[in-house]
């Protein structure tokens, strides 16, 4: 008729935001112990996965965001590269997607290194998950606003680095905004330990959290679980973690507690009464001593 509609999206058309953990400390050094999958192998799995997503539907869209230690950036966007097929693959050994992604990744790593401040970091080096989550959500918002016909977005975090506690608030905010805009966050943890953040992220947003037992079979995990479009998820049973522990732990002894004291200002949790909040420094009013409080409580039933 008048024109071929500019967008023909249907329910199973997906927009996959893939957050790639590019923490160099994760992939290098004594990496053989952290992940049994070396980076090239890992990337092979991921790239094949991306290709398979694009294969499933001509309208599927894939965006890759690199999560570095100091920065994060978009390194591949299948929608923007559609027009430029002319600069054909460099040596025919790999698809265009792959070569383009790799060159962008290289640039990104150089930039990320330039931004790093100290020479040899001590302790845990975590990647900037909050930043890449925000980038992904921004992109999704743009897609949402582009019109009534848009692909169904979802986020997939391929995370290996440990959680960065200082990002807690930012990540939680990202999670809640994802929840609000009904974007599921899938997480595939490739590192040595589970990620509490991603567990919560997937739980809250209704995504899938999975930590592959066999790193060699990463592609199989990706294609079996994470390639499932949102429409099909209504009909399928996907692996769910056995449980997410939402119990809080006290800040003073890091014990998991069922009942405790909460700072009314910063919501820090303590297992026993303190005079002052050790986190924000708020001075607590003199709590009613044990005797007085129980007395007060008890009076009522007696009357």
């Amino acid at each position: 008729m008048a024109s071929i509609p500019s967008k023909l999206y249907s329910d199973d058309v997906s927009l996959l935001m893939l957050l790639l953990d590019t923490n160099p400390f994760l992939w290098t050094g004594a990496n053989t112990t952290t992940t049994s999958l070396p980076f090239p192998g890992f990337l092979t799995h991921v790239l094949s996965f991306l290709n398979s997503i694009l294969l499933l539907n001509q309208l599927n869209q894939v965006v890759v965001i690199a999560t570095g230690v100091n920065s994060c950036d978009y390194i591949y966007d299948s929608s923007s590269s559609l027009q430029k097929t002319a600069d054909s693959s460099e040596n025919g050994r790999m698809p265009i997607l792959c070569s383009r992604l790799l060159s962008k990744l290289e640039e990104f790593v150089i930039e990320d290194e330039r931004l790093s401040k100290d020479d040899s970091p001590e302790g845990i080096v975590s990647s900037l998950l909050s930043g890449s989550l925000s980038l992904a959500l921004c992109y999704i918002q743009r897609v949402f606003r582009s019109g009534p016909l848009h692909p169904q977005p979802r986020i997939l975090c391929l995370q290996g680095s440990p959680d960065g506690p200082e990002q807690y608030v930012a990540i939680m905010n990202a999670i809640f905004s994802a929840q609000r805009s009904m974007v599921p966050i899938d997480s595939c943890v490739i590192g040595a330990q589970h990620s509490a953040f991603l567990q919560q992220a997937s739980y809250i947003t209704g995504g899938v959290y999975l930590k592959p037992q066999l790193p060699d079979g990463l592609f199989q995990y990706l294609s079996t679980v994470f390639a499932t479009d949102l429409l099909s998820r209504n009909f399928l049973r996907l692996p769910k973690p056995v449980g997410v522990d939402f119990r809080a732990s006290c800040f003073c002894h890091k014990k998991t507690i069922d009942m405790g004291y909460i700072c009314s200002v910063c919501l820090s949790i303590f297992c026993k009464h303190h005079k002052k909040c050790s986190t924000c420094g708020s001075v607590f009013g003199q709590a009613l001593g044990d005797t007085s409080s129980t007395d007060r409580k008890r009076k009522t039933p007696e009357t």
């Binding site: 499933l56 199989q220 009909f235």
Partner: peptide, 21 residues
């Protein structure tokens, strides 16, 4: 193959994908 795969219902696509290897 590609066209046929794309013509499949979403669930069938997923099944093909997970059987690929």
């Amino acid at each position: 193959c590609e066209a046929v795969l794309r013509s499949l219902p979403p669930l069938a696509k997923k099944y093909v994908l997970q059987m690929l290897y």
